[in-house]
Amino acid sequence: MAHWIEPHPTGIYVRPADAWIDPSLPQARALVTHGHADHARGGHDHVWATRETLAIMGLRYGTASGTAVGYGEEIRLGGVTIRYVPAGHVLGSAQIILEHAGERIVVTGDYKRRPDPTCLPFQPVPCDIFVTEATFGLPVFRHPDTGGEMDRLLHALHANPDRCVLVGAYALGKAQRVICELRARGHHDPIYIHGALERMCALYADFGIDMGELRPATGVAAKEMRGAIVVAPPSALNDRWSRRLPDPITAMASGWMRVRQRARQKNVELPLVISDHADWDELTDTIRDVAPNETWITHGREEALLHWCMTHQMRARALALVGREEEDEG
């Protein structure tokens, strides 16, 4: 089945279209699911992606050239009909739907099923081959309700008026989502952000995502940030950068925070289990929803999901793509 697409360690090659999906090496024609660096690399000759993803790639690589594909819009490349459908992962993220020779293939990129105020929700598309991620492909990963995690964050903030809460969140997607979720819980104070987030937050604002008042955390007196939330990329949490903050409570928003030792290793005091990836139940529910003849697993804890597919009489294989899964993204 589907001899017309080929998994390679460097990406998925769509033969009749002579195009690669999320290639990790520069290629002539690249179909890109979303803007995270392990999926969207610079240096391709031509890129097809959503308008938002192209803008993100432009910000990161300075090469905004490419063809914008709207959600639901159909394009044809060498006899393959291609559609981009929301994946619910980050702003502009898409599943790529390929149809050719009477077969339909869905490549999810990264995705999640729970609501996210910064992007459109995942749409399940029934298919013959379902190419899925498995970042949290172990049954210990069950992300709790996002609202409850936000409440814990706000509780810690209000219980410590002389300190600040420093939230580590990946610069693309997680940071903006956390800010929007806080606004939705009624937190309207200014939120301070690390310099590495500024341009991405501005880009989100350009696409109509309202994050309320954001202020740079750099060049501000420590006492001004007392009782405030500060958002920074995870790498800044234990770095000298955080010494400028007023006695910060270190929080981290990531699906990995579900496991105590992972949180402790990162010196996190307030682990927030908030993920932009599907948890175990979302992964298995989605496979049931799209009911493919075969499931291909690109990256993550693929052994466990493979085992689950087999024990549920579903055909599956692991692709072992290289260079995927920047851990900070969880």
Binding site: F141, R142, A304, H307, W308, T311
Partner: peptide, 22 residues
Amino acid sequence: DPVLYEMSRDYVGDLAETVALL
């Protein structure tokens, strides 16, 4: 599933935590 339990325990490390999560 005992296989999924073994994989999980291997990943998490601690018995009580694995069982609590699983």
